[in-house]
Write a protein that binds this DNA or RNA. Structure first.
Lengths: 244, 244
DNA sequence: ACCTGAACACCGTTCAAGT
DNA sequence: ACCTGAACACCGTTCAAGT
């Protein structure tokens, strides 16, 4: 992905431009959000980035909401692209499959930390399309793989639910820590006595002895190890479905 | 909470109004989002709801971002309000404490499904303020309680990380399913052949046999049971910290 | 067929001015 | 001290008009 990330060259008004299309618009939007954050993504700015007026986008995209939907679709589509490449041998266990899928989604979250909240919090099209696995193809594949390896229907569904919740919790937190750039462009503004009451409750760590003592440990980043550990525990939990 | 939820009475320009304050503004904003969804929350509309021009809000609130921050603070504050009421006997086990905390956060998510994504995805003020437990007092209490009951420092920190990820994953999904109201105010607009290519890939379930067969099971709502089960499994996992 | 100019209704925010 | 009118820069979106 981002094979042509050098999008900073003179794009406006050049005659040799890639022709406008839904694909190009979505690709450009993803690059743009990766660089400037989600709140910076605006129809007008996206138009400018493409060397075109904002109104032209409405030929290919049904408004801003549809654009965001398109971004989410493209993101999860990367999952089954790699899936095809990484063809699963029928002998491979379901544990290896879930390991692969978990790490694929994690890579997505780490490569696009500002987009992952979008995948995580937009309302799903169907109640069974749970974030972050919001792709029918991925869900179908998930169920098929587990059922072919001995899961009952009910247990496959339960596994799907537990797996998606696990991914959502761990990866949204990890992405949130990575994407801290685009949120604080302003400084906290403490000059003199603030005239906004209650707005600057200066964090007095003396009142919170445990936090103060453990502050360093609490700030350490063990996202990788945490993820692996929780994933293994989840797989153990799912394994009990088969044997009990 | 929402003790005076009958906010539909004639609020504008009445002489007997509650005086404007940061508290009142935040309370009103929370009510407003619960009714109309997060995207509907606008400085101007919030002003109107309060019977005041939007510009007046800037005396008490440092812009929209600060308002959202204030909302999040108020929400998590409800946690340690109830905490005080529900004073913990020193004899109570850490498991009972975590059970109580988990259910308190879950109640929050269910009562304010449109606000929970805010708690979940706004960038934390400090790396150790992990959503959804973004309150120093709650985190301090969490660590103190576990350490007083035999957890080492390192294990208490690990427990805090696992617990917050668990809550985030399960509750964000549950809230997302509850808050489906404010997201589709428009109908999907399929009339004739769409002129937006690729925008109406009609979901053909015939291509996805497992999903079609399991659609009903996938759509059932077992959020409560899932949550209890996953919580118990998590507590078991944490219990191993003490014995291994 | 594809893009644009102009317009509309709505934002967040600032600031001098009112009371 | 508290609120407002007017203004500014910026949104998303529509539509008749250009080429």
């Amino acid at each position: 992905m981002s094979s042509d990330a050098d999008a900073d060259r003179d794009e406006r008004a050049g005659p040799g431009r890639r022709p406008l299309s839904r694909e190009l618009i979505i690709d450009t939007a993803i690059e743009f959000v990766d660089q400037h954050g989600l709140t910076a993504l605006t129809m007008r700015r996206l138009g400018k980035q493409l060397g075109v007026e904002a109104m032209s986008l409405y030929r290919y995209v049904n408004g801003r909401e549809d654009l965001l939907e398109g971004i989410v679709d493209r993101m999860v589509a990367e999952l089954h692209l790699n899936q095809g490449r990484n063809e699963l041998h029928p002998a491979t266990g379901w544990q290896a499959y879930l390991q692969w899928l978990a790490h694929a989604v994690r890579r997505l979250a780490r490569e696009h930390p500002d987009l992952f909240p979008l995948i995580a919090t937009r309302h799903p099209a169907a109640p069974w399309l749970r974030p972050p696995l919001r792709s029918v193809r991925v869900v179908e594949d998930f169920l098929a793989t587990l059922i072919a390896r001995g899961f009952s229907d009910a247990h496959a569904v339960m596994a799907y639910r537990a797996f998606s919740s696990f991914l959502l919790g761990y990866l949204l937190l990890e992405a949130s820590l990575l994407g801290a750039r685009s949120s604080l462009p302003e400084e906290p503004l403490d000059e003199g006595e603030s005239d906004v009451p209650g707005a600057d409750q200066k964090l007095d760590l003396d009142t919170f002895p445990h936090i103060r003592r453990l502050e360093e440990q609490l700030s350490e980043d063990h996202a990788g190890a945490e993820f692996e550990q929780a994933l293994e525990d989840l797989l153990d939990r799912l394994d009990r479905f088969l044997t009990e």
